[in-house]
Design a protein around this nucleic acid. Sequence first.
DNA 1: CCAACTAGCTATTAGCAATAGCTAAAATGA
DNA 2: TCATTTTAGCTATTGCTAATAGCTAGTTGG
Lengths: 195, 195
Amino acid sequence: MPRAGLNPSRVIQEAEQFADEIGLANLTLAGLATRLGIRQPSLYKHLESMDALQVGIATRAKYELADTMARSAVGRSRSAAVRAMAYAYRVWAIAHPGRYAATQRASTPDDHEATSADQAILNVVISVLAGYQLTDDDAIDATRALRAALHGFVTLETSGGFGLPASIDRSFDRLVQGLEVALDGWTDRTACQAR
Amino acid sequence: MPRAGLNPSRVIQEAEQFADEIGLANLTLAGLATRLGIRQPSLYKHLESMDALQVGIATRAKYELADTMARSAVGRSRSAAVRAMAYAYRVWAIAHPGRYAATQRASTPDDHEATSADQAILNVVISVLAGYQLTDDDAIDATRALRAALHGFVTLETSGGFGLPASIDRSFDRLVQGLEVALDGWTDRTACQAR
DNA sequence: CCAACTAGCTATTAGCAATAGCTAAAATGA
DNA sequence: TCATTTTAGCTATTGCTAATAGCTAGTTGG
């Protein structure tokens, strides 16, 4: 019988596409092997374990997301950059639900490739917030808030957490507006609280 | 042999406590049965399936969370209510990681008990936002933004998504401040964008 | 052209949720 | 009180999962 001509890279790429189609939770080695035209144990020639496969998907996905976010913000600053990045984030997440789910896995500190992917996303967000002149802890806090808002929204959206039929696009638009407002008043806490 | 004296309620309560201890993902029927002093197949006398058990945990957890949030905001309004609710949300989620993970499961529309639990949380958030005089879609958008921010922050925190050692308490505090600022400027989009 | 390497295979194991069918403990009713 | 019914537990089993062991044939390097 002829060989399938696989390699670790091809396996991960097929797996991430498969995961987007059927959902990360439904990804099994047997299913992936069938899709690749081989038997399940043969997969172990290209990967270490199911866990390692998911880490591989997660790492690639994080780089891809970081890249998408970075491209979206090129040539923009402050609220325009935040807005562009937020939209790119949501569009990518919805277009790649399996990969996005994979990005939610936290990296183990000793996995340098995975932590580097985390750092890539972090760096993009930090760059996007550069125009706000936030320093040290303020920058970290704002980065976390931005990631939390985007991640929370997309997670709730993709998991069906927004039961109501009201426009999710509109809600996201308003969330981003809220983020812009909050970032404008980030260092000056009293700026917007007067009524 | 004497009977264990179990019932569906006791099984779910033990399961949610167990899930908090070992993580929802590590909850197995075999483990739960051992903890209850019975064999794995015997569990099926009290539950329909693993899936149904998780729905049961999720529903109870959603009610518990809604109750916690509601109590925290009693006697408070506007930013004080938002702040109190946000803190109660995070404290409860961290104290009950298994249950909180369970709440992330979306309800199937035909499960009235589960959707009612969703509604309970929604109602609390809507009540807390009542002081902001938001109408219709604005209220929905603000509710979604608030839930997204809280859910995203807690999820990233509990999954280890905040790799940096910087104070997470402080970051959460700043997030809540950001929410207050954003809600103050919710209907008047230009209010806080002047620099 | 032969030797080393390796990508595939079959066979198998252990852990999981789930079902079938049995039995003894509890609850019910005359 | 005792007979009947109900049911909460049990053992045995199935099918699916990830994972390992060991074999073989296709590929590649000297």
